[in-house]
């Protein structure tokens, strides 16, 4: 059976580690040593801490903002690529959009610092017109720029693929029934491509929710996001069980969001 190797591999090295994380969250730490236990103290400590919920809210907001922003920026581009350019240009653009996947995200973020810093390229450009400098590095704005950089190529590609599957006859039929340009986009193209558009936004949310590179190097790491919090907790005296609690809260959130998004994407109209 060809099915078994993957199943065994993922059970052993994916599911078990995650389940182990669940067990770990009930362990206790004494004298910098972790001990198997069934202690709800870690959960209680994290879930009653104000700082955790602040970080949770911040992370969720950042991820939502990134998903919405990236989707909005990507859509006109994906629409143009799918509907308005020749097949050759389309293939070329898709190829170009794949390139970023083969470059290191960290290097890109590092490079963005040079663009965003007080003495960076953008402020130098603004200064040329007597504007600025505008504080961009170590702000939420900086974090968002990084997250959008991370998500944009993927979201444009996913949106383009789903728009490619939109039946061109439907677009013409809408025009034929007196539906104008913009209205057709909103009433026919977006609903037709709904599954792909939602999945693309979901990917942006997942990537942004778990990312720690942008919040750390462009947002300054303060206030912390959940990913940064995990690293902080672990750093301070082997508190891995508490980090596990945070990680499990993140996974629960991601699974819930993914479930809801997919429900929404595949919702059927009519009886």
């Amino acid at each position: 059976m060809l099915s078994l190797p993957l199943l065994i591999w993922q059970l052993a090295f994916f599911l078990f580690p995650l389940l182990f994380l669940v067990a770990l969250s009930f362990w206790t730490v004494r004298n910098f040593q972790m001990q198997p236990d069934l202690d709800f103290g870690n959960w209680e400590r994290i879930l009653t801490r104000r700082a955790f919920w602040d970080a949770y809210l911040l992370t969720a907001l950042l991820a939502t903002a990134s998903a919405v922003l990236t989707s909005l920026i990507a859509f006109p581009a994906a629409y143009a690529i799918s509907f308005k350019v020749s097949d050759r240009v389309k293939q070329w653009l898709i190829f170009v959009l794949i390139i970023p996947f083969f470059t290191s995200y960290l290097v890109r973020v590092y490079s963005l610092q040079v663009f965003l810093s007080d003495a960076g390229i953008i402020n130098a450009f603004l200064g040329f017109f007597g504007l600025g400098p505008i504080l961009m590095l170590n702000t939420l704005f900086g974090t968002l720029v990084g997250l959008v950089t991370l998500c944009l190529p993927l979201v444009v590609l996913l949106q383009t693929f789903s728009l490619n599957f939109v039946d061109r006859d439907l677009v013409e039929a809408a025009h034929n029934l007196r539906c104008g340009r913009l209205r057709t986009v909103l009433m026919v193209i977006v609903p037709s491509a709904r599954v792909g558009l939602v999945i693309a936004a979901l990917f942006a949310f997942i990537l942004s929710f778990g990312d720690f590179v942008s919040p750390l190097y462009l947002g300054g790491g303060n206030p912390p996001t959940l990913s940064i919090m995990i690293t902080d907790i672990t750093k301070s005296g082997q508190q891995w069980p508490r980090a596990a609690v945070v990680a499990l809260m993140m996974i629960t959130t991601l699974l819930t969001v993914a479930f809801l998004a997919i429900q929404f994407a595949y919702k059927e109209r009519g009886k």
Binding site: Q10, P17, A244
Partner: peptide, 21 residues
């Protein structure tokens, strides 16, 4: 089980695997 791993943040995957392995 087969397709979910990329959706779990790297930090969490790392934490879980390091602890488990």
């Amino acid at each position: 089980l087969a397709l979910l791993p990329p959706t779990i943040p790297v930090v969490i995957m790392g934490l879980a695997m390091l602890a488990f392995l």
